[in-house]
Nucleic acid binder design. Structure first.
Length: 464
RNA sequence: GGCGGCGUGGCCGAGUGGUUCAGGCAGGGGCCUGCAAAGCCCCGUACACCGGUUCGAUUCCGGUCGCCGCCUCCA
């Protein structure tokens, strides 16, 4: 059984499913006003790995992730650039999906948009007002947090301590500085929707509450995101749901930061690297492997050096895939029992079990990837000893487990362009007749063109 | 001020009350190779500091120092 850290309890505990065999998870998606950066890349990779692993274990996964397409940042950007909010949102949503596709992050099973759920949000706010836990002011409707049972659950702080630490000034009409907006009354020039409290727009992530409950139902299994969402974002989501008498997420999962030089990567510090920049520099799989090689709750340092190191690990995986002609583990979503049954050369059951033990232990991907690299070593050693059967079994396990984590193997050398093809052929010819000076010169040309040259029993293989 | 996390060998990064080792990268030596590449074998350097518990602590407890984060809109 999979055990995961739960932010609400601060402990690692079993993921107890509401519906046996089926996981309902809501992962907070992007507010589309900026291109995605490595922090977004990390959380989407973490939850993609979780989703793939759950699927690997034979569970059905319903993965809902929102797109918040209306908020202050979008309004600000649209105003600044003389465009409409929908134009801005559409542009950055497109860049979001482009990045997700490049990272081979599976699309969520549902992607609700905030602007399509406004009536539902108005209804929720109405319920909260009717329950007398929310109140209207001149500029909006606010949730009165001291009426909410267990406010501070995720922050692990009592209400009073949050109040003392609050950096925000109490407005004259707010009853507590911690009370937060459920509905913001329109200011001139802003997009608006009608409501009983006048035209305006939704407040604090009410969309996530309404959309998660609508698509996943009360008491859904898992709610997640980056650690910076714990408070106040997720705290306030929970507060709204609980105040409305609904049962919210059963388990809260949050991933750690991407760090830059020891500091958190964030928009406010302006120290972020976009996913686009990362992709322009190298293999997108390197970021996935880097993420896998650290525990999801720990911070990771993402630099050209750490990416390059991950890239060398990738080369090691690819080299095995090439040597043993392993199947592409990403030709479909990998389900363990089916994949094991389909594996022609068999798999190493002990290794798969060990991998699962590690993954079940709060998604210990560093240990799980170590398991995989251990298999790589054993597969090579078996092949060196001429034990083709063992090599195929161990190699097949590598492919299986990489697939379970969403890591594609590149075994093929691909089609060569004609000039390269000719260089390779001429080099093989030279080597056959023992003209090594000529062979070395031709290798020099290939290396200069960026190819790595390997001479195997069947002739020269080049790759890059 | 409140709350939380972290300090492991050159780097990244698991793990455990003791005599089997995480794993990867980098480094050294060998094997293979026409030479390489890929691969295999072998090797080195650890558990921030100070106390305590214990037969024995990197692992448990207490303290010190250092780093990081959250406390109203940052994944």
């Amino acid at each position: 059984m999979l055990r995961l850290h739960d932010t609400a309890t601060g402990t690692v505990r079993p993921l107890e499913l509401r519906d046996p065999g089926r996981v309902s998870m809501y992962v907070c998606g992007p507010t589309v006003y900026e291109v995605p950066h490595l922090g977004h890349g990390r959380f989407t990779l973490v939850f993609d790995v979780l989703r793939r692993y759950l699927t690997f274990r034979g569970l059905e996964v319903v993965h809902v992730s929102n797109v918040t397409d209306i908020d202050d940042h979008i309004i600000e950007r649209a105003a600044h650039e003389g465009r409409t909010e929908p134009e801005v949102a559409a542009e950055y949503e497109a860049s979001w999906w482009a990045a997700m596709d490049a990272l081979e992050v599976l699309r969520p099973t549902a992607v609700p948009h905030a602007t399509r759920y406004i009536p539902g949000m108005v209804e929720l706010v109405g319920q909260l007002v009717a329950r007398d836990v929310a109140y209207e002011t001149d500029d909006g409707v606010y949730l009165q947090v001291d009426t909410v049972d267990g406010y501070g659950l995720l922050a692990h702080q009592p209400l009073e301590s949050l109040r003392v630490g609050a950096r925000i000034e109490a407005s004259e009409q707010k009853r507590s500085p911690l009370d937060f907006a459920l509905w913001k009354k329109a200011k001139p020039g802003e997009p608006t929707w009608p409501s009983p409290w006048g035209d305006g727009r939704p407040g604090w992530h009410t969309e996530c509450v309404v959309m998660s409950l609508d698509l996943l139902g009360d008491g859904f299994d898992l709610h997640g995101g980056g650690q910076d969402l714990i408070f106040p974002h997720h705290e306030n989501e929970r507060a709204q749901a609980v105040a409305a008498g609904r049962t919210f997420a059963r388990h809260w999962l949050h991933n750690g930061w991407v760090m830059v030089g020891g500091e958190k990567m964030s928009k406010s510090l302006q120290n972020f690297t976009t996913i686009g920049d990362l992709l322009a520099r190298g293999d997108p799989r390197a970021y996935r492997l880097l993420v896998l090689r650290s525990h999801y709750r720990r911070p990771i340092e993402v630099t050209p050096e750490t990416i390059a190191t991950a890239g060398r690990g990738l080369a090691r995986l690819d080299a095995l895939a090439r040597r043993l002609a392993l199947p592409d583990p990403m030709s479909g979503v990998v389900v363990r029992d089916e994949a094991v049954a389909a594996a022609r050369g068999g798999v190493d059951d002990d290794a798969v079990a060990r991998f699962c033990d590690h993954m079940d232990d709060d998604l210990d991907t560093p240990a799980a990837t170590a398991d995989v690299f251990d298999l790589v070593n054993r597969a090579h050693a078996a092949a060196d000893e001429g034990d083709a059967e063992a090599a195929r079994r161990l190699g097949g396990s590598v492919a299986l487990l990489c697939g379970a984590m969403g890591l594609r193997l590149r075994s093929g050398v691909g089609d060569l362009d004609e000039p390269t093809r000719q260089l390779v052929d001429r080099r093989d010819a030279a080597r056959r007749v023992g003209d090594f000076a000529r062979a070395d010169a031709l290798r020099g040309e290939l290396l200069a063109a960026g190819w790595t040259v390997e001479d195997g029993p069947d002739g020269t293989v080049v790759r890059r």
